[in-house]
């Protein structure tokens, strides 16, 4: 993958510095949220698969880490400001997670796909989703070493299934790639980053930040739980919507796989990962709920942006 097109002065500076690392110097201020989002996405990507036109050793360059840090501080502040907070004592973590998910009143992309979406809208949704789905589960793998024994074992059990149980053909990101080809889209990693809305990038940046920072381990697994808890029923609706549009090949199979898989994953995530983490590290209970809120909030923002652009809000 090549680096994305810059969207302002900050991302222009980041892309130039990653291509030709020079130590020192000050990054310009982003002129827009979009510029900030693509800059942080590009910096994070250096820790995943990287770019063919970036210098590999720029990943750990102090000047680049400084920009990454500054953007992450701003992102985390944004996310925390939106969170209404948790009760002083969280007695039942799975029940508290259910309450966070139930309080979500954001619009449903899956409902739109099931009933009304056009093929073009569905393809646009896949282009947006592909930014994450082509590396599905990867951000959560960062979290494994940050966890105590029970939640670590449970996360590995869940991730093993995400990665196809060792079978590359069943790996979820690969199932998605095959789905992309089947609906006539490009499947190579990062193919549609230049088309990504800032809402899509922010959703990905938040997930990478939660995954990479040990301090944010509670929020990371809370995000995972909320993600899995809001997947089975919407995945069924996606299958129905794709059937309605005659797209019932490998992409429908991808969503179909998630109905059964996530019926398991949501329970592993809430009970075996989040609840045991909160038991072992009680100060993480509120953080788990912060992560869960962040997941549903960012999803709602992306759904609103897409539905508004389709005049379907």
């Amino acid at each position: 993958m090549r680096m994305p097109k810059p969207r302002g002065p900050l991302s222009e500076w980041v892309v130039a510095r990653l291509a030709t690392p020079v130590d020192g110097g000050h990054a310009p201020t982003a002129d827009e949220w979009d510029d900030e989002c693509i800059a942080l996405w590009t910096l994070h990507e250096m820790s995943y698969r990287g770019f063919e036109d970036a210098a590999d050793d720029a990943e750990w360059q102090p000047a680049m880490l400084a920009v990454r840090h500054e953007l992450e501080v701003a992102l985390e502040q944004r996310l925390r400001r939106r969170w209404p907070g948790a009760d002083a004592e969280v007695a039942d973590v799975p029940a508290a997670l259910e309450a966070v998910v139930a309080a979500d009143d954001g619009p449903s992309l899956a409902d739109h796909v099931r009933r009304r979406a056009t093929t073009d809208e569905v393809l646009e949704l896949f282009r947006q989703r592909s930014v994450y789905q082509l590396k599905e589960a990867d951000p959560m793998t960062w979290v494994i070493p940050h966890l105590p024994v029970r939640s670590k074992a449970a996360l590995v059990e869940l991730q093993y299934d995400e990665y196809g149980g060792g079978d590359p053909n069943r790996m979820h990101s690969h199932l998605f790639a095959r789905g992309m080809v089947d609906v006539g889209l490009r499947a190579e990693y990062g193919a549609y980053v230049d088309d990504a809305l800032p809402e899509t990038l922010e959703l990905n940046n938040a997930l990478s930040m939660l995954g990479m920072h040990r301090r944010l381990r509670g929020a990371a697994v809370g995000h995972l739980a909320a993600f899995e808890m809001t997947s089975t029923l919407p995945s069924r609706k996606m299958v129905q919507g794709l059937g309605r549009l005659g797209l019932d090949g490998p992409m429908a199979a991808y969503f179909d796989e998630h109905v059964e898989a996530d019926a398991v994953h949501e329970l592993l995530a809430a009970r075996d990962i989040c609840a045991t983490l909160a038991e072992d590290e009680p100060d993480q209970a509120a953080e788990i709920l912060f992560g869960a809120f962040t997941c549903v909030d960012l999803e709602a923002r992306l759904a609103t942006a897409l539905l508004t652009s389709w005049d379907a809000a």
Binding site: E157, Y160, D161, G165, R170, E260, A261, A263, V264, L267, L268
Partner: peptide, 8 residues
Amino acid sequence: DVRRPVVA
């Protein structure tokens, strides 16, 4: 057939 480590 079951191919995942845990089923519901």
